[in-house]
Amino acid sequence: MARIRVRILPSNITREVETETGCVSEIIRRLGFPRESIVLLYKGEPLLDDMCLEDGAVVDAYVATSGG
């Protein structure tokens, strides 16, 4: 299991997501967004779908459909 802390922007709400793999596609699925609606950043760099994070990692999730 890998617990990933996700700060969702622009709402600024932080959610802890429990995943089997820590992989980006699973994090997005667990957050409940379509993949196309969101961009995940780790240490300021965008994450690709098949990248995986370690337990305890903190990421920013930008919701593309909000604002503009």
């Binding site: 299991m1 089997e20 793999t21 820590g22 992989c23 098949d50 990248m51 995986c52 994070l53 370690e54």
Partner: peptide, 13 residues
């Protein structure tokens, strides 16, 4: 760390 948990993979080219 469970066997399912992979370490952060290197960024693809």
């Amino acid at each position: 760390m469970t066997p399912m948990l992979r370490r952060a993979v290197a960024r693809a080219k």
